[in-house]
Amino acid sequence: MNDAAEQLLSEMVIAMYDLFPGVDSGKVQHSLSRVLSKYKIDVQEDYQYTSDLQEKIKLFITAKKVEGLSQATLDGYKIELGLFTKKIEKQVDHITSADIRIYLGSLEGLKMSTIGKKLNVLRTFFGFLAAEEVIRQDPTARLKPPKEEKRIGKSLNIEELEMLRESCETIRQRAFIEVLYATGCRLGEVYGLNKSDINYQDSSCRVIGKGNEERIVYFSPRTMYHLKKYLMNRLDDCEAMFITERRPYRRLSKRGIQDEIWKIAEFAGLRHKVSPHVLRHTFGTLTLNNGAELVAVQELLGHKSPETTLRYARITEERKREQHKKYLVI
């Protein structure tokens, strides 16, 4: 027997002795030796379990960075794919649809929408590798996204919005409320705003949204009044639209903006109802209920599809009755 056969014989004898401690190892070795002598045996490295995921993730992240994706998006990819590598220890070309199903199925306590987002990251990753011919087949191609639970987005009514406005104690807080509501911007978008982004002639502002895509949003006259009041009272030279109240003045963090909104909401008695994203929902709901076209609201919110906009906003019963009465042909 060659070296590979001798190695196999030795390992099999040890395994047999572990299973049956009283067995005569000499007889087992002799019997197995006669059987194995009939075969040609080679040692094959188990490349399938020598993971090259980290290497391929670096390739993917580099390519997406060149495409111009934001750092926040790249960091999100790194986190999600990093979690995946902790569960899957295979070469990417050996990863199957079953592996991914098992991985997603092991994620307990998560909402279907969260699992769907994780699958989307894997789709993007493996789709890229397949397109670049790094792998022969995309294991996510046959996977269907999980059915998401239908939820009505939370939003404030007009009375609650006015309660927030009246509960602001500083001009900066009032500017927060007005900008978040009037533009429907995401928290990260407001965080990234600079004073130079404002177009005072048409009361608009340039926003960099998801996917590093730029869009224009608009301020109401009320928003412009409170924003100008806040900016004119500042004595700093920081470029950020919203800054810290103490020196050294710098761009206010996302957490800082959230904390301010929560302070206002708590003072208004709406602590558990309000967040920056709730104000975004409120913008979508109230504008649609006031007769705005769905496509226009979709563009203002920076959504790629109208279905997303519909999830953000819900039409009130009063509005439905009004529309039924107005447009029903009788």
Rank of each mutant, 00 (worst) to 15 (best):
A296L: 12
Y327M: 04
I95L: 07
R101T: 08
R101V: 09
G284S: 15
A265F: 08
N212S: 15
Q201L: 14
A268G: 09
D99Y: 03
V23T: 09
E318I: 05
L270H: 11
H30T: 13
Q137A: 07
P139V: 03
L59T: 12
L156P: 01
N233R: 13
P145Q: 10
S203V: 03
A4W: 05
T308W: 01
Q91A: 07
Y77Q: 07
D202K: 06
D236K: 12
T140A: 10
K90P: 00
V92Q: 00
V92I: 12
T244N: 12
H272W: 07
R222I: 12
E213Y: 06
L9E: 08
E108P: 00
D46E: 13
K40E: 14
Q201A: 13
K144F: 00
P248I: 02
L69K: 15
Q54S: 14
H324P: 01
E133V: 04
A313C: 01
F125R: 02
R247P: 00
M12L: 15
S70D: 09
S275N: 13
G284T: 15
G76V: 01
G211T: 13
S33G: 02
F84A: 09
A15V: 00
P221Y: 06
S97P: 00
D93W: 01
K118M: 11
A313Q: 01
Q258V: 04
L81V: 11
Y39D: 12
I100L: 10
D99P: 03
L180F: 15
D42H: 11
R319L: 01
Q29K: 14
K38P: 05
T170A: 02
E67R: 14
L143G: 04
M12A: 14
E299K: 15
F84M: 10
P248C: 09
F128C: 06
L279Y: 04
C185D: 10
I243A: 04
F126D: 00
G291Q: 03
K56A: 03
K254G: 11
V329K: 15
G302N: 03
Q258A: 05
L288H: 07
E166V: 10
D93Y: 05
H324W: 11
S305F: 06
H281R: 09
D52M: 02
M112V: 02
A63K: 09
I171R: 07
T223G: 13
A175Q: 03
R172F: 04
D202L: 02
S155D: 07
L193C: 11
E162M: 14
S70W: 07
G68V: 04
R314L: 05
I102P: 00
G256K: 04
Y181H: 10
D202M: 04
L294Y: 11
M112W: 09
E132T: 01
K304P: 00
V23Y: 06
D42M: 07
C238E: 15
T223V: 03
E6H: 10
Y103G: 08
P139M: 00
R165I: 08
K147P: 10
R314I: 06
S275R: 09
A313I: 02
I171W: 01
M241E: 06
E318M: 10
L286F: 04
V92F: 01
L59P: 02
K117F: 11
I95A: 06
D197K: 12
V121N: 06
A240F: 04
K117H: 15
F125P: 11
G76I: 02
